[in-house]
């Protein structure tokens, strides 16, 4: 049976009960706080736990979801996202939780924790209201990019000429130098593009971040057409996103450049840490 004595600050209970958390939402007036009519991870029924004007979507579970099978994990992530999407549609911008955020304990544990953090969540939800996350990736055809780099760099042209005049052995070494220089310039070019784009997008966004390169492989990640020249994620409202779209139109006008502009997504990259000071 459930351990009703568990509270925040106590050691996690050992009842084996746990709650998987999807997102927090604002329960403003006129919104139906009923079920989303949608199953969550592993087809578990998703419920809303409400504390005042803040709600938390959860399902009952026994512990962490864990698998070494990327396809299974991908399925879980899609289910997680589907719940957050449905919550967004009904309640507006949520505070999305990271996959596999699991509270050890029963509904009372979650409620008491939520009560303690209700004000903080309400502030964050108010702050994020009307905004979504957008992801931007600028891809450049490598041949076009390299041609432009070679044309603009004297040192590369010198090395190319030197290579053509060299014997086979020397040419090999010169080739190495050429490649090193080209790689340096590619890196510089990428950094410059990211900075320029970041500045332009930031004029219309609430916040801009340069995300790390993807660190996970989920099996069937599609091949990218071209080299990534810039990758940004922006938090913007509807007005801002129109202006960002215009900036990206300019960027995509350049020969050999393709822009991927995706969203709106829940603001995964822009939620602050919620800390109860006990960890």
């Amino acid at each position: 049976m459930t351990d009703r004595t568990a509270t925040v600050g106590d050691a996690p209970d050992d009842s084996g009960e746990a709650r998987y958390c999807y997102c927090a939402v604002s329960l403003h007036e006129g919104v139906e706080p009923g079920p989303l009519g949608l199953a969550g991870v592993e087809d578990e029924p998703v419920r809303l736990l409400a504390e005042g004007d803040v709600g938390l979507f959860v399902h009952d579970c026994a512990g962490l979801y864990d698998s070494a099978d990327p396809t299974e994990v991908q399925g879980w992530l899609l289910s997680h996202q589907a719940v957050v999407d449905a919550a967004t549609e009904r309640f507006g911008t949520p505070v999305p939780f990271r996959f596999d955020t699991v509270v050890q304990g029963d509904d009372d544990t979650v409620r008491s924790w939520l009560t303690e953090h209700r004000e903080r969540f309400a502030d964050v939800l108010t702050d994020l209201a009307g905004c979504s996350e957008y992801r931007i990736e600028v891809l450049v055809d490598e041949e076009t990019l390299d041609a432009a780099i070679v044309e603009s760099d004297e040192r590369l042209r010198e090395l190319a000429a030197q290579r053509d005049e060299s014997t086979e052995g020397t040419a090999f070494l010169v080739d190495k130098q050429y490649d090193k220089r080209l790689n340096e310039l590619r890196r510089e070019r990428r950094a410059a593009r990211t900075e320029t784009l970041g500045t332009r997008v930031a004029e219309h966004a609430r916040e801009v971040q340069e995300p790390d390169d993807p660190t996970t492989t989920l099996g069937d990640t599609p091949e990218k057409e071209g080299a990534v020249q810039a990758r940004l994620t922006a938090l913007a409202d509807e007005e801002g996103v129109d202006a960002i779209g215009s900036v990206l139109d300019d960027v995509a006008d350049e020969a050999g450049v393709r822009v991927r502009f995706t969203g709106p997504w829940p603001p995964y990259s822009f939620v602050p840490e919620v800390d109860d000071g006990t960890a």
Partner: peptide, 15 residues
């Protein structure tokens, strides 16, 4: 992003 980002609760009820 869902694997890496989103709220992380620094609470001792979290597993």
């Amino acid at each position: 992003c869902i694997l890496r980002d989103g709220v992380i609760l620094q609470a001792d009820v979290i597993i």
